[in-house]
């Protein structure tokens, strides 16, 4: 099976250690979410997996064999910093990138036709890439990534810049690839996307792994320490709890508050206060924390408040 193994890998740039003895695995037929604040070492890790750079210590293996030019042909990489040749026509561009992955010309042409059609972009095949909108270029680049049917797929922020319809199409295709037993690495800051897509997660910060494992297990391990409260009236009563360090409010709007109970604080006093100070309470529920909360608390614990706050907090939708 096409397992990707990152085995005790370290990468240094001068005195700076970008990746510090990191180990994890990605399984075929599953999507691994690679998370972490900016500058955590995600891109450095991905580049070593893609055999763009080499680790100083440790080894990256695919299918039990050290990565190299052979694995590059079986891997599709969509970098976060992305771009295409501006002056080459769309079809020529896709064919060039496919040929670099070792595809024959006829095979490439056939697949280009299929994928352009699937993304509704057939009529753009003969246009120069610079004439395309940013979103269309994103789609072209995604096509370029998956066109050679790689067994290992690395997607870094694949949804950025896409409208909801195209994002949904992309999600659909990613899930198809998962069902086709591909090994998929998904790096993102958008926690709700990670929650929707990933089977496993691996959270890196300052070059080290803070949390890893199946998403469900990770969430369960944090317990039901999150409260969702919906009510009518003034929410000022919560400030007292927050000042005493019992809770942390992660999401606050007019009629809805999402908060975490810190250090095993009981939820009952909050319900009582809510009943005393608000006009009405519709909902009071203890749930597992959303991934964004796990992210923030884990990173905060490691680096202190400042670092965690620098991470963009994503709007969390509770389905």
């Amino acid at each position: 099976m096409a397992v990707l193994t990152i085995d005790n890998v370290t990468k240094r740039y001068g005195d700076f250690t970008a990746v510090d003895h990191v180990s994890f695995e990605a399984q075929p037929g599953r999507i691994l979410g690679l998370l972490g604040p900016n500058g955590a070492g995600k891109t450095s890790t991905i580049r070593m997996i893609a055999y763009i750079t080499a680790p100083d210590e440790g080894e990256v293996r695919f299918d039990g064999r050290g990565v190299g030019p052979w694995s590059q042909e079986q891997m599709g990489y969509l970098p976060e910093e992305r771009g295409l040749y501006k002056k080459i026509k769309v079809a020529d561009q896709l064919r060039y990138l496919a040929e670099l992955k070792g595809l024959g010309r006829a095979e490439a042409v056939e697949k280009i036709r299929y994928w352009l059609d699937r993304f509704g972009m057939s009529e753009w095949a003969g246009k120069k890439t610079q004439e395309l909108s940013k979103g269309m270029q994103q789609k072209i680049q995604f096509i370029a990534t998956i066109l050679p049917e790689p067994r290992l797929i690395i997607l870094d922020e694949p949804f950025s810049g896409l409208d909801p319809i195209n994002a949904e199409l992309l999600r659909e295709i990613i899930l198809e690839l998962k069902d086709a037993d591909r090994t998929i690495l998904f790096a993102s800051h958008r926690m709700e996307q990670v929650e929707q897509l990933c089977d496993d997660i691996c959270l890196i910060s300052q070059g080290q792994i803070l949390v890893k494992g199946p998403l469900r297990d990770v969430k369960r391990s944090f317990g039901r320490d999150t409260l969702i409260l919906e009510f009518d009236g003034d929410d000022a009563f919560l400030d007292a709890f927050e000042e005493r360090g019992l809770i942390r409010i992660s999401n606050r709007s007019k009629h809805r508050v999402e908060l975490r109970l810190l250090d095993g604080a009981p939820s009952r006093p909050i319900l009582e206060a809510a009943l005393d100070h608000t006009d009405d309470v519709y909902r009071f529920e203890r749930v597992e924390p959303p991934l964004s909360e796990i992210f923030i608390s884990v990173v905060t614990e490691q680096q202190g408040q400042d670092a965690a706050e620098s991470v963009p907090r994503s709007p969390v939708q509770v389905a």
Binding site: I52, K86, L97
Partner: peptide
């Protein structure tokens, strides 16, 4: 410079040395 500015180089070097 063009390959670097457009970032296409990152994709290329994930296919070739």
């Amino acid at each position: 410079i063009e390959e670097k500015t457009t970032r296409v180089v990152e994709v290329i070097v994930s296919s070739v040395r």
